[in-house]
Design a protein around this nucleic acid. Structure first.
Length: 644
DNA sequence: CGACTGACTTAGCACCTTAGGC
DNA sequence: GCCTAAGGTGCTAAGTCAGTCG
């Protein structure tokens, strides 16, 4: 055993070296040491490290929001599902894509003209429909705008004309006034501008827990020193001797009210195929310290200021090319209409790409979104078949098929994410279905009266803990036992499977089907079923809204949507407690309720219901403006009796 | 065929704004 | 009117997945 470990350690060192040689560029993609094969060998090196680090307990505590601590998010905007939006127009029972174009033109002035009939253009559009007809629907926001030309572009073409002003750059750093000083070891030290700027990044975060973490401090200090002059580096050798107090206070006092409206007006819109569209994130991300989620190995590193020389502009050849800021040049100007971004740059911490793209309420994004739900709706048509197949596959003689079947079972039943592999050491250690390790599940032949219970405990996306005990079929249970046989905790549960294989298989079952479609599908169907179950036509608005919120909660639980309790949580709880205490008995009842409500979900608006749920509930009660804009396509297209 | 890249979606957190209680 | 909590928005990290390349 010891020898085995030793060998593995050696292997690990080799891999690490290799990774370093590659230049540590992209994150979370590459498998370490390209030669590894699936069977049994997957990520060997990776595991060793984990084993050394200690088991699941250690990792599991990363995020404090385990069950009972975190709150389940109950948010209607949940991106994974949409259902039952009231509005106009949708042909029931139509195949995906069918009859959709007819709606696309109908939209303008939707808010005012609810009851009006769709406008014409049907046939023409329909005729032009794309091959399989999996596409097209639209929507548009500004009533004054001309109607979209329903031109179908050939495959992959996203636009014909694109013009914009380029991204907005954050203001240059303003050096500290003379009366604000940084102190080292009790003495004022005047820093060079670049060192000073980075110091302010740290100072700004002083109130945040991040700055107390070792990795964060270490990464920050290392990167900070790179920005220092030689002289400064000689003096400043210990972060603990640094006093950022004055910088911190200055930051607190400063009221930064940029003329935001003007900036949005100037940079916030583009022209895409002759329509003015809102850009989602037109501001270049300002420099600062990287805040990864969870135990991120790169937390605290300096996120450098992006210069125009780093930025690639994408627009039409015949458009007015955006001007770079005075004295600067763009890295490149290209005219690629197969992509939707307007500008991009490479971020220095992870080496990943950043894009400036359109707002969610834009035609381009809306269409994509629409398609997503259409795929999920198509899945509805064949999901039973797929289930039957994977139940069969649980008995397959081929290991990779069995593993695929079990993985699919989890993805379907528990709405787990696919679980791509990530590069060790580059990001926090999180997993999804395919990347589950043996240490993430515990098998209980019997637990709390249930048989064949699988206990999941792992950190998923954003280091949100997934903890669940689920009874599974005995066949799945047996398979899991088999997969875990002769493996260490750090070994992959599905050693013969990865997301590429899984998705390839799924796509062969149904075009467009991938693992994440199951999340969309299950979220949507859950919401619908819950609504049906919880609400009655005779309910008043308040009751219906309550049902809606409860149905949403069910979805949030399914999808493991959680958020940490707000920082002010404890304080506000204490306040409430004090009040309540002072008011004796009857109030003690209210107290419990309040507490309960608070704990359960930050998002629940139960308390001030006035109105209610899907049918006959004003949309405004359920979706805020942003959501309504984003889902405008659904609103425009959905009849009162729409169902998923 | 797998590694790697690029594009795009998903999602939590921080902060700002608004609503509501006192 | 002030204060607090809820609600809404912006930001950007962290995923998914398809396409390309050696």
């Amino acid at each position: 055993m010891a020898q085995k470990r030793k060998d593995r350690n050696k292997e690990e060192m080799r891999m690490k070296k290799k990774a370093r040689e590659r230049g540590g560029k992209r994150v979370g993609r590459a498998r370490e040491g390209g030669v590894q094969k699936w069977r049994g060998k997957k990520n060997e090196a990776k595991k060793v490290k984990r084993l050394k680090e200690g088991g699941r307990q250690e990792r599991g505590k990363r995020r404090e929001n385990g069950p009972g601590v975190a709150t389940v998010k109950v948010e209607p905007e949940d991106c994974d599902f949409v259902i039952a939006k009231r509005g106009k127009k949708r042909e029931r029972g139509s195949e995906p894509g069918e009859g959709l174009e007819s709606l696309s033109l109908a939209v303008k002035k939707r808010k005012k003209v609810r009851e009006e009939e769709e406008t014409g253009g049907d046939e023409g559009q329909r005729a032009k429909k794309k091959k399989e007809g999996s596409k097209k629907k639209p929507k548009e926001e500004k009533a004054e705008q001309p109607v979209w030309e329903e031109e179908k572009y050939e495959d992959g073409i996203k636009w014909k004309f694109l013009e914009h002003k380029g991204p907005y750059f954050p203001p240059e750093y303003q050096p500290l006034p003379d009366n604000v000083k940084f102190y080292y070891n009790g003495e004022a030290v005047k820093l060079s501008p670049s060192a000073e700027e980075v110091a302010t990044f740290f100072a700004k975060m002083l109130e945040h827990e991040y700055t107390t973490k070792d990795i964060f401090r270490k990464n920050f200090f290392k990167d900070w020193r790179k920005e220092m002059t030689l002289e400064e580096r000689m003096i400043i050798t210990d972060l603990n001797k640094c006093d950022f107090g004055e910088l911190f206070r200055m930051h607190k006092d400063r009221v930064i009210k940029e003329a935001n409206q003007k900036i949005v007006e100037d940079f916030g819109y583009c022209t895409l195929d002759h329509h003015r569209e809102r850009i989602g994130n037109f501001k270049i991300e300002p420099p600062g310290l990287f805040r990864g989620r969870g135990d991120h190995p790169k937390q605290g590193m300096l996120k450098k200021r992006i210069q125009p020389e780093d930025v690639i502009i994408n627009c039409s050849k015949d458009s007015h090319i955006p001007e770079p800021p005075a004295g600067h040049k763009w890295k490149e100007v290209r005219h690629d209409n197969t992509v939707t971004w307007l500008a991009s740059w490479t971020e220095n911490v992870q080496g990943s790409f950043k894009y400036v793209m359109l707002n969610a309420n834009s035609k381009l994004k809306g269409e994509k979104d629409w398609e997503k739900y259409e795929v999920a709706r198509r899945l509805k048509g064949c999901v039973e078949q797929i289930r039957a197949q994977y139940k069969q596959d649980l008995k397959s003689k081929q290991m990779h098929i069995r593993q695929r079947a079990v993985a699919l079972y989890f993805i379907d039943k528990l709405a787990l994410r696919a679980g791509n592999e990530k590069e060790e050491g580059e990001t926090a250690d999180t997993v999804g279905c395919c990347s589950l390790r043996v240490e993430h599940i515990t098998l209980h032949p019997e637990l709390d009266g249930d048989r064949n219970v699988v206990e999941f405990d792992f950190l998923g996306k954003d280091c949100i803990r997934y903890y669940n005990k689920v009874p599974v079929t005995s066949r799945v249970f047996k398979n899991l036992k088999l997969f875990m046989n002769n493996k260490d905790g750090g070994d992959d549960l599905f050693d013969c499977l990865n997301t590429a294989m899984l998705n390839k298989y799924l796509t062969s079952l149904m075009p467009g089907l991938t693992a994440k479609v199951f999340r969309t599908y299950n979220a949507s169907i859950t919401l619908q079923d819950q609504l049906k179950e919880l609400s009655n036509m005779s309910d008043n608005q308040a009751e219906k809204l309550l049902s809606y919120n409860r149905a949403n909660r069910a979805v949030a639980i399914l999808c493991n949507h959680q958020r940490a309790p707000p920082k002010t949580f404890e304080q506000s709880m204490a306040n409430l407690q004090a009040k309540i205490d002072s008011r004796k008995e009857q109030l003690s009842l209210a107290k419990t309720e309040l507490k309960q409500a608070k704990k359960e979900a930050k998002g629940s608006s139960d308390a001030k219901l006035q109105a209610c749920k899907n049918m006959e509930v004003p949309l405004e009660k359920i979706y805020n403006k942003t959501q309504r804009d984003k889902f405008a396509w659904a609103i425009d297209m959905t009849e009162p009796d729409f169902f998923f």
